[in-house]
Every structure is written in C-alpha cells, then in structure tokens.
C-alpha cells in the first residue's frame, strides 16, 4: 500500500509537469492573433457629407469640443488657380 501511494505521488507530479510543459509548447507555437482595425476605420466611400452645421456636437469633461465625422468624403476637384493644399502630417 505504501509503495502504491508513493508511485501515485510520483505519477501525479510527473504528469503535472509534463502537462504544463505540453501546454507551454502548444501556446508557444500557436499562431498569434491578428490585430483588427476598429470598425470605424472600415468605412467605405460614401456620398458627399451635408454641411458641417448638420453634425451633432458634444463636449467632454476636459472642456474640449468634438463632433463626429465618421464618414470621409472624396476629394473635390482643385480650384482653377489655387493649388490643392492638403495638410496631412509627415
């Protein structure tokens, strides 16, 4: 009986270690999750927007104002003489 208990203890210990290592190996070799873009980024070309006055507006706790503009609009044609100026960061 004593031998049986000792064998059982060793068996549980070895099985636990092997299970842990097996799980580690599986996780290490599993594919990494693909980072998806937020839903708002996936907007497609939409019709021209109404004038800006039509947007809803809001104020946050910091006293900053914001208004939603989830729909991008297509670039208008350039003016006849003034070059199209676009600020975009670099």
């Amino acid at each position: 009986m004593k031998i049986f208990r000792k064998v059982l203890h060793y068996w549980i210990a070895i099985a636990s270690v092997l299970s842990f290592l097996g799980g580690w190996v599986i996780l290490a070799h599993s594919p990494k999750p693909v980072q998806s873009q937020p839903a708002s980024v996936q907007s497609v070309a939409l019709p021209n927007l109404p004038p800006i006055q039509a947007y809803g507006s809001n104020v946050n706790n910091n006293g900053l104002n914001f208004f939603s503009n989830n729909n991008s609009q297509s670039s208008p044609q350039p003016s006849t003489s003034v070059p199209m100026l676009r600020t975009r960061g670099s």
């Binding site: 937020p38 708002s40 900053l64 104002n65 914001f66 208004f67 939603s68 503009n69 989830n70």
Partner: peptide
C-alpha cells in the same frame, strides 16, 4: 482620434 472624431475649441 481613432474614431475620427475631430476635437478643438
């Protein structure tokens, strides 16, 4: 911001 909200005063 990320949601394309435009902030300003």
């Amino acid at each position: 911001d990320q949601a394309k909200k435009i902030w300003g005063n």
